[in-house]
Design a protein around this nucleic acid. Structure first.
Lengths: 346, 346
DNA sequence: GTTAGCACTCACGCGGATCGAGTGCTAAGG
DNA sequence: CCTTAGCACTCGATCCGCGTGAGTGCTAAC
């Protein structure tokens, strides 16, 4: 293929105009506004070539042209000039996030919400994997016969609790002993490491351990095993307003899919590798309900390690030049807000 | 007004047919299907009277008639014959709820979800007020400088945590002492009672209390003060499918309003008084976004005391004869599931 | 390679005709 | 006085045909 400079310029112009207006762009308008001294007929020739390349398509014979998925892809890869984030937007993001430090859940919520509001699209955030967090404190409480409530707290103050069913019953003093042992042994270590160690120890030495010890470890293993795959979604109803989704059906599927969340997880976890903004345009996500959408996702890092992803979901026709830097900036701000080195806390 | 028997019968027939079909009902059809031996012209006379009474309205001159809000109200108050819940539905409700006993949150979730699924409308539940729950256990953890994580557990295993900012900083051993004192003093008492007692004691004796004691009590007060007003909503997107909401705008407002939840709280708390199913038809809710909807809400009781409300939100045109008993039955099942006297646990 | 010209296509909006369901009114009959 | 048949009328829904205009592809000349 190899597009010459003029073709690229026209493609860029066309996509930018389409993003701004939402309607198909025709040759006359393009010839007039492109800045090039060429006629509409010449433009038509070029557009025909671009259509052959699969970068554009015409909804019907006598309409102008709109970008295809491939067209958007080429555009963002080779033609896009991003804009610095508007100062008001930047300030708003920082303020909203800052208000909720240091409550992790609240910060995530605020970041997603502000992103959604500024973009007028659906915002999402992949909640940080707990695996890298440090265990702060554990409690085991006897709830009913053979049911134990396990509560654990990380160094960031995130509290999780799980109900565990036992085969044998334990009284509260036994549980307290187990918790003491557990806190002494594993407090201050990362959850993931604790889980590995538990699994290893239980497998190797099961029979030699005394009862309390074994109880503690079995409880701990059950407690840590499921690292809930959580995603927050915010403002997805804004998609109802977008003209791109004016007609029904597919949007409904999208909303439902987004609500189910489950399938989004693996998509987003792809983005965790690498530290840059990642785009999924249309079918690139490999996920049918998102076929008409683009996903802009940026990983965020806490204390130097990527722990989650934040971004937006919207129509393919979105102002990438604004959205991408905004998502990127929000991810950075979020990472900073969640890191332990807060301004003023050296 | 005082409608004669024939008028009531025709009104009942008309509303039932309209609920079933969704389209305006005309005089001919009604004369044919009503079972009465009267002509369409006679029916027309009666319908005209009912329209004068404000129970019916005609969307336009040459359409049939549809019930007004007042019409539905009269219908459910005086004409409605409810149907026993279908055995499969009953079984499904019991099974879904039963699967998640004894986890309160999961049970609530399951109950709302099954209600939403069976009715194809939005399900909601007003989460039980914690005020009546018994305090089981408290922990205070020093998180950062002057920030304390307070965790408390009720006798049902519900875990709540709050971040508390202090004016002075406390080290972990002081916090542990405070927690010990708190557990010893207030463990086993209802949260509401504890809060009252704390507030009274702090006011009266503030200056005489020793430091640890005062810390414990101040932490406790902060912790219990806000009884979060929580509502779960499930399946609200199903409303998008209903022909009654086919057109746009108002539905969007509804969905957003439902998401905000806040305003729903006071509406639902009205239903807590009394133990019966309560209906809000159209504007009766006094809440603009619900003007086109009906809300069916049934309070549920745990251990003999009403603690919350469960129900559905849907169009005014809903099969009340099925929905009402279903909501009622689900509320009972929910209450039973959350009560401490479980089958087999005397 | 570029451009002007031209025939062609097709979505869209508009007015008019038709259809049919359903009404209100009137007058006759029990 | 209530009921009923008859009838003119209303009005939304549907379809049809037409004109319009934007935009295209092709061809031939520059």
């Amino acid at each position: 293929m190899a597009l010459d400079a003029r073709a690229q310029h026209l493609l860029k112009q066309l996509i930018e105009q389409h993003i701004a207006s939402g309607v198909p762009v025709g040759s006359r308008q393009l010839a007039r506004d492109s800045g090039l001294q060429i006629s509409a007929a010449t433009v038509r020739n070029v557009l025909a070539d671009l259509e052959d390349e699969g970068l554009l398509m015409a909804p019907h014979t006598s309409a102008g042209r709109v970008p295809t998925r491939a067209g958007y892809r080429f555009f963002v890869d080779s033609l896009l000039q991003t804009l610095p984030v508007a100062p008001e937007a930047r300030r708003l993001v920082l303020r909203r996030i800052g208000e909720h430090i240091p409550d992790t859940d609240e910060v995530l919520h605020a970041a997603t919400e502000v992103l959604s509001r500024l973009t007028r699209m659906a915002g999402f955030v992949r909640v940080p994997r707990r695996a890298t967090r440090i265990l702060r404190h554990v409690d085991f409480l006897a709830l009913r016969e053979r049911e134990v409530l396990a509560i654990f707290v990380t160094d960031r103050g995130d509290v999780e609790n799980r109900l565990i069913r036992l085969e044998q019953s334990l009284d509260q003093s036994q549980l307290a002993q187990a918790a003491n042992y557990f806190n002494a042994t594993y407090g201050g270590k990362p959850l993931q490491e604790i889980l590995w160690q538990l699994q290893r120890d239980l497998q190797e030495n099961r029979d030699e351990l005394d009862r309390i010890l074994r109880n503690a470890m079995e409880l701990g293993e059950e407690m840590l095993d499921a690292d809930a795959e959580r995603i927050l979604i915010e403002g997805e109803l804004q998609l109802l307003d977008l003209p791109d989704f004016a007609d029904n059906e597919r949007l409904r599927e999208l909303l439902q899919a987004v609500r189910r969340k489950r399938d989004l997880v693996h998509l987003l976890d792809q983005s965790v590798r690498g530290s840059d903004v990642r785009l999924f345009i249309g079918e690139e996500s490999g996920y049918a309900p998102l076929a008409d959408c683009s996903v802009v996702a940026a990983p965020y890092s806490v204390d130097g390690e990527v722990v989650g992803v934040i971004g937006v979901i919207g129509p393919m026709r979105m102002p990438y030049h604004e959205i991408i830097p905004l998502v990127d900036g929000t991810a950075r701000a979020l990472g900073k807000a969640l890191s332990s080195e807060l301004p003023g806390h050296p």
